[in-house]
């Protein structure tokens, strides 16, 4: 049976009244990630907006066990949980490490790469709000070209994002996927699939951030969807090397109706200073990436 809103479990692991901004897609994505794991999980979280969601001592908004860990150490913390559980003979729990793009692309890349190279048995989820939002929106390795942030305040960022999912795929992982908070069922299915696989599984989740990207919080879902419709974000999974477009990205590919990336950019205040040249550069980048995905998606024809 296909997962839909009607048959999806009602059990919640994220409690109402948490500290995240109204309309935060991280909160939405996390709800569905934990549903997919049915609470049978130990989570490790570094400094990030997600730490804020988890709450302030002695109260947490989350009903699964969790270990907060210093910013750079998420991958290693996961390894420690796995090693500890193994030493104690507990085999029923999934270890989930979940960090922002700063904690993944930048300061945490070493520990993550180490854990992935060791093929440690856990799911790593990077939720990507394309900046250091917890500290007030500074540039990260995932902040796009031209975007204004606290540390690219006037000129916008001068460099492109790095493709972290490709970097993780290069580790030879059994499962690598992308997801988007605007497609919670696709996210849910991917986490469920990842749960059943052994080894290091990596999922990148695109999570629009209303204050950081400067759009009204009511538009979170629409902005996430625009990212998919324009190819800014692409939904796919790579299972033991086999590439597949999923959900809305598969449908855009089939219909061939990719929309101009400008439609995604103009909705956000962070891109207000983009030059035409930068828009063209971003479009070229999206086109190249989209084409690479189409070339790999052998199941489309």
């Amino acid at each position: 049976m296909k997962t839909n809103a009607v048959n999806l479990t009602e059990t919640e692991y994220v409690l109402p009244g948490n500290r995240l901004c109204p309309g935060c897609s991280v909160s939405l994505a996390y709800r569905h990630i934990l549903k997919a794991l049915e609470g049978q999980v130990i989570v490790t979280v570094p400094a990030s907006c997600l730490t804020v969601l988890h709450g302030m001592y002695p109260v947490t908004s989350v009903t699964v066990p969790c270990v907060n860990t210093p910013f750079a150490s998420t991958g290693a913390s996961a390894t420690g949980l796995i090693a500890g559980l193994k030493a104690l003979g507990r085999t029923d729990l999934t270890v989930l490490a979940i960090a922002g793009d700063g904690g993944t692309y930048d300061i945490g890349i070493q520990a993550l790469s180490g854990a992935a190279e060791r093929q440690d048995d856990f799911i790593y989820i990077c939720y990507d709000n394309e900046g250091y939002m917890n500290t007030g929106n500074q540039r990260s390795g995932s902040t796009p070209l031209g975007a204004i942030s606290g540390t690219t305040p006037i000129l916008g960022k001068q460099q492109n994002q790095k493709d972290m999912t490709a970097i993780m795929e290069a580790h030879g992982l059994p499962y690598v996927a992308t997801a988007n908070a605007s497609y919670p069922l696709d996210l849910y299915d991917k986490v469920r699939k990842a749960r059943a696989i052994e080894g290091t599984r990596f999922i990148h989740v695109f999570t629009p951030c209303p204050p950081g990207w400067r759009f009204p919080f009511s538009d979170t879902i629409r902005i996430g969807d625009l990212a998919i419709q324009t190819g800014w974000d692409i939904l796919y999974e790579v299972e033991n090397g086999a590439f597949r477009l999923t959900s809305a990205s598969a449908s855009v590919a089939r219909k061939g109706n990719l929309r101009p990336v400008r439609e995604f950019l103009v909705e956000q205040g962070r891109f207000k200073n983009l030059t035409e040249e930068q828009i063209n550069q971003l479009q070229d980048r999206v086109n190249a990436r989209w084409q690479r995905c189409l070339d790999r998606a052998t199941d489309l024809s």
């Binding site: 490790t44 270990v67 290693a76 913390s77 390894t79 420690g80």
Partner: peptide, 12 residues
């Protein structure tokens, strides 16, 4: 990472 591993394993 060595000490991060020990930390989490010890909490377990």
């Amino acid at each position: 990472s060595a000490l991060a591993v020990c930390t989490s394993a010890s909490i377990v």
